[in-house]
Design a protein around this nucleic acid. Sequence first.
DNA 1: CGGCATGTTGAAACGTTTCAACGAGAGTGG
DNA 2: CCACTCTCGTTGAAACGTTTCAACATGCCG
Lengths: 245, 245
Amino acid sequence: MLQKTFETPAEQEIATDLPTSPCYSPVCLHRCRCFLAPEPASGDEKDGALRYARNETIYARGDKALYIYKVLEGSVRLSRVYADGRRQIVNFHASGDVFGSEFAAVYSTTAEAINDILVLRCPRLCVHHLAAADPDVNRKRLMMLSRSLDEAERHITMLGHQSARQRIASFFLSLDAKIRRDGSYAFDLPIGRQDIADYLGLTIETTCRALSDLKRRRILDTPSRRQIVVRDHAALKAIAEGAAI
Amino acid sequence: MLQKTFETPAEQEIATDLPTSPCYSPVCLHRCRCFLAPEPASGDEKDGALRYARNETIYARGDKALYIYKVLEGSVRLSRVYADGRRQIVNFHASGDVFGSEFAAVYSTTAEAINDILVLRCPRLCVHHLAAADPDVNRKRLMMLSRSLDEAERHITMLGHQSARQRIASFFLSLDAKIRRDGSYAFDLPIGRQDIADYLGLTIETTCRALSDLKRRRILDTPSRRQIVVRDHAALKAIAEGAAI
DNA sequence: CGGCATGTTGAAACGTTTCAACGAGAGTGG
DNA sequence: CCACTCTCGTTGAAACGTTTCAACATGCCG
């Protein structure tokens, strides 16, 4: 279960796309175009989609980056594993998100299924081929990477100087923005406590305590393990932004 | 000196390049091509380069992202400033590096000169124009963004679960790889302690203590404030990777 | 040489981690 | 259907590391 691709500072070369023959199959090209649409699954997209079971590895850090993926159902975590066994989750991806779209020769993170998932997979060479014909393809990839970078910078800032309670508050605020359905204040949490902890750079115990603290303050509620209700959005925001309380 | 663009979770829209007329001037186009070369300054590049004084702001987070920059001389820091006055440095850029190349409508970070610097500036629309003619332009931008994302992920992992001593060790290891000239084990540190602390997510005091600790262990030496000598590269690496010592 | 920014050290306060125990829920088989 | 088990989540108390506040040292520039 542990990755062999440990984190060691300084290595990893960035390279251009891998030099093999592209795939011209119309099915494949059609599928690749789906990556450009920001929306989640649309009917025929699901043809040829892949299933992964909970905790299954989609690709590992260091693997040749041959494919680009799009989540159709379920959630995916991108992480780096360390020699000491600890794990840093770098990003989560939900339905509609594209991942593995980096430009390096090998994947920089390990991608795993959080629950049972359905993903679309497209060979990078195919995307490359598409990009030669349509300059918009690389523009869209630039946009996606740019957004990832922005999220990464926000993540850095959070880890750099937010307390445990602030991190939890920020985390649920962003989840709230991403996941919340129309009027309801409740949403399903697709991930477990350990994953939250590994994303926030905390231990699972500290994560629990911070959560309990927010529950005691009646800012959050967790009717069940995997459900979150944001009771006081304003207070949550105040805490995330550094209110003394 | 404080930015008005505070960090608040959730906002910032990503947009395509800004819709104004591009610049077709040959000088400008030539300059833009320089961005594609990974090398530092080359003779005629310096025509029309801009100077910024130490601590001067090149652009602020939230400003319209009109230009892409390349460092010719000196160092630049990219940071985000918080309501509480603290600052997280997201990245450093030295001679030869390109920055501000994100695809969003506004800059996601503030760029400041660490010392007196010389930079090349190119309108993004111009780059855009170039990209329409030459698909390689967007490929190169993809590569640069991809590398930035990889660095950001490494940064996240460091902030997520490395101790102060480990962070310092990792930091000097990567600096060593970047800056070191040929045979010598010493290199000049282009930045001050506060900048290091703000990058590592530590206070300046903790940074100092960790440094002193490594000096006591004879792993590092600082002949002067801005000079670093790596005495025991292997030990530094061992610490960065989590050695108990 | 003084003055000011920058860097360094110490001691107490604080927050997070660690280690340990316990609770709650989901799935399985009797 | 209940009891069993296993994983996941929660809480407590002590240990640990970082921050804070304060003082002092050093280097740089006028």
